[in-house]
Lab assay of single mutants.
Amino acid sequence: GIPATNLSRVAGLEKQLAIELKVKQGAENMIQTYSNGSTKDRKLLLTAQQMLQDSKTKIDIIRMQLRRALQ
């Protein structure tokens, strides 16, 4: 079985993952909103794209940590 310490770690990672998935969803929504907007929305679009990139990276890292914890 999986050690108890790993189980609480997994629960924490799953919570983090859920949050990051919401951030990713929000960033994707912002990108959709701003991509057909005016030029003043360009900065917001770039910010949203950066957020999305960061979020995807975090999600990958969390998933990797989850896999390790579940081994």
Rank of each mutant, 00 (worst) to 15 (best):
Q49N: 05
Q65T: 03
L44N: 06
Q71L: 10
R9Q: 10
I59T: 01
P3T: 07
I19Y: 10
R68K: 11
I59K: 00
R9D: 09
K43A: 14
Q25F: 05
Y34A: 06
M64N: 08
R67K: 08
Q49D: 01
S35G: 06
T5M: 10
R42S: 14
Q16N: 04
R42F: 13
T39K: 09
M64Q: 11
L45S: 01
L52K: 02
T47C: 15
L13H: 01
Q16Y: 04
M30V: 05
K22V: 06
G37A: 07
L17G: 00
L45H: 02
V23L: 09
L52R: 02
G12P: 03
K56T: 11
G37Y: 01
Q49P: 00
L52I: 03
E20V: 07
S8Q: 12
R63Q: 07
A4I: 13
Q25M: 08
K24D: 00
A69S: 04
T57Y: 09
T57G: 05
A69K: 02
L17A: 00
S8K: 09
A69T: 05
T5S: 09
L13Q: 00
S38T: 12
T57S: 08
A27R: 02
S8H: 10
T33C: 15
K15N: 05
D60C: 15
R63C: 14
T57F: 07
R9L: 14
G26L: 15
M30I: 06
Q25P: 00
I62R: 00
G26V: 15
K56A: 05
Q53V: 09
I59L: 04
K40W: 06
A69V: 08
L13W: 04
N6F: 02
G26Q: 15
Q71S: 11
K58W: 03
R9H: 11
L66N: 00
A27E: 00
L46I: 12
Q50P: 00
T39V: 09
M64E: 12
P3E: 10
T47D: 10
R68G: 05
Q32N: 10
A69L: 15
T57H: 13
A27M: 06
L46S: 05
L70Y: 09
Q25N: 05
R68M: 13
K56H: 04
Y34F: 07
Q49I: 15
T5V: 10
R63W: 08
G37M: 05
N6D: 10
R68I: 14
S8R: 07
K58V: 03
A18W: 07
Q50W: 05
L45Q: 02
Q32L: 11
S38C: 12
A69R: 02
K58M: 05
L45T: 01
E14C: 15
I61T: 08
E20C: 14
T57I: 14
V23T: 06
I61W: 14
D41H: 05
L45K: 02
M30R: 03
Y34I: 08
N36I: 06
I19F: 11
L21R: 03
S35K: 08
G1Q: 09
R67Y: 10
G26S: 14
